[in-house]
Nucleic acid binder design. Structure first.
Lengths: 341, 341
DNA sequence: TTGTTGAGGGTAAACGTTTACCCTTGCCGT
DNA sequence: ACGGCAAGGGTAAACGTTTACCCTCAACAA
């Protein structure tokens, strides 16, 4: 039995189109489309087989452009991250990419640098791309966001809620509870006068953490003095932590622990303490955690946020169109305790 | 002078199309297209002004789908990263995103997990998307790669060269020179018996580094004994470094430095040494460097690779169509010396 | 016999661009 | 007077899909 000689694609062949498939299968274009989209009762078993065969032989895959044009919707999902240099954002993006791919969606990753103008530019671009959904990793208020909100494109906010609408589609942890957990742990360790270091309270997440820590200590009878506020010059968390630790030392106040609202801040503070000759080592708390912490920061107790599962939650929110569905995915966190041996 | 009452878009308006612009400007669709694409001698100054005005009023932006369909090419650039959890890959992706955006291109980020099957799946998807170019951050040999190579889509390899064609479009550093630099520095410090720790020699970059270090020490009269080879079980660089340091200690051989082919390996090794009660602290060298190293790894001397500039080089390679152009962008590296104070 | 129904499948319009081709007008040189 | 040319701009085809609508045929009920 010899192989039937089929018309092979030349090496520089154009990508096969649905018309090629139809011709090869001996059916109309419409039939091919219906088979591929699984429209029931529109093709006999034999026809389906012939179409699938042709698809396989030609290595056909529908053109995204054609599809998008017709359906007025693409398979692109935009992820607008405030700062890709932050390992946390990168981790969320990575897990989101995997989850989206499983749904046949494609991730477009953008770095807004926390800049409203740039965020708007991306929002415009994504409207032109007819993005299926837009995911914000740290949204910032902006005119286009106001315009897009309420439009047909689903908006999903991760970690930081929509600055203009707290009741948004959301993926994140219970930051207030996390703050209480840290405070409870510190109190149980006998800590009474921690220093609280945090960035300007722009995001809902940071705010919730700070308020919870302050509240918990106050409730326990050990109020924390007003927290340090650093100018916008300290944009980077790392530098911010370093500067804050410096200030603390100069201030001369006695502290028995450092509570930082992010691991990067903790890194900065820790560095200063290590470098300073007359600073005693003291417990440090952070938020986010990270697989690298086990290796490079074994001195840092941190709230482990399950960023690896954020992606799945995001993808579910995008796919799930049920009416009454809960659009708030609050995922479990856990305080990881580490101390220098 | 009162404002002319114009037909405002309703809140839920469809995105304006070129037809809307044409109508509002009182010209044909073709003219709008030509104005927007800057075709010379095809529109009077007055017409151009009317079109631009209409574009601004409607907040029009050309539909990507329509454009792609017609031009058989999209503005998407795929970045296929071997492992997004690696901060290095994330850094390159971030800088690439910025550079692409400046060119009006859009980055699609994919994580191949170093898996040929998954890489092929992405290559197929990107063919369907009619991607403008494909950037590999750690390519792996695969059937589709062989098929796509030589096709019309530009392929750009970062750090690791095309496994099937060393003379590919490439962005990276001179890894052999970097290896020699590390060896020279170590030799100048009086180091004579370093241990060399590296992952399986799958990538061209690692291979060049290893060979250069071995060669330099041999040439100086201090040959390095055969390097450790760890099984594929140690997939993660971090665990690999830890396990290697463990093995070294058990082996009992005396070493006066550790040279690791990547910072993550160095992190792992350092952790083991820190934990081990009877290991003396010794100089550690790595490759990649990273802004975080100043904060979390002040003990690590590392070859700083300018990942922040990789993106621009990638974008240039994509945009630059000159015939005789050099398709190899070898960027400068620099050994950053750090030692525990 | 006559309708009715459902399966199976073809036709053609529409989505938003770009561009080859055509037409008109005014100007110039001969 | 006439051809040629350049500027300015319109017409319509093509890109690859999806889907509303139409058609045919067989089975089946009244």
């Amino acid at each position: 039995m010899t192989m039937r000689r089929t018309a092979l694609k030349p090496a520089d062949a154009q990508q096969a189109s649905i018309a090629n498939v139809a011709e090869r299968a001996g059916v109309s274009i419409a039939t091919v489309s219906r088979v591929l989209n699984g429209i029931a009762n529109k093709a006999s078993a034999e026809t389906v087989a012939r179409v699938r065969q042709a698809v396989a032989e030609l290595d056909y895959r529908p053109s995204s452009a054609g599809k998008s044009l017709r359906q007025r919707q693409s398979r692109l999902v935009a992820v607008l991250a405030a700062n890709l240099a932050n390992p946390t954002m990168a981790a969320i993006a990575a897990s989101t990419e995997v989850a989206l791919r499983e749904q046949g969606l494609v991730m477009v990753l953008c770095d807004t640098h926390d800049d409203p103008m740039l965020q708007d530019e991306y929002l415009r671009e994504m409207r032109a791309q007819q993005a299926r959904a837009i995911v914000f990793l740290g949204a910032v208020a902006s005119p286009m966001l106001d315009l897009v909100r309420g439009g047909p494109t689903p908006l999903i906010f991760v970690n930081r809620r929509d600055p203009g609408e707290p009741n948004c589609d959301f993926v994140g942890i219970d930051n207030a509870q996390a703050g209480r957990d840290v405070a409870a742990h510190a109190l149980a360790q006998g800590i009474r006068r921690p220093a609280l270091i945090h960035a300007p309270l722009a995001s809902s997440a940071t705010r919730a953490r700070v308020e919870a820590v302050i509240g918990s200590f106050a409730a326990a009878g050990f109020p924390i003095p007003p927290s340090l506020v650093l100018g916008p010059a300290e944009k980077e968390h790392l530098a911010l932590g370093y500067a804050a630790a410096n200030l603390l030392e100069r201030g001369g106040a006695e502290h028995d622990a450092l509570i930082c609202t992010g691991d990067l801040i903790a890194f900065g503070a820790h560095r200063f303490i290590e470098e300073s000759p007359h600073s005693a080592s003291l417990p440090i708390y952070g938020f986010d955690d990270n697989p690298l912490n086990d290796w490079v920061a074994p001195w840092l107790s941190s709230v482990l946020i399950p960023y690896g599962t954020f992606g799945r939650a995001v993808a579910e929110l995008i796919t799930d169109d049920r009416e009454g569905a809960d659009r708030q995915r609050v995922l479990p966190h856990r305080l990881i305790e580490r101390r220098r041996s």
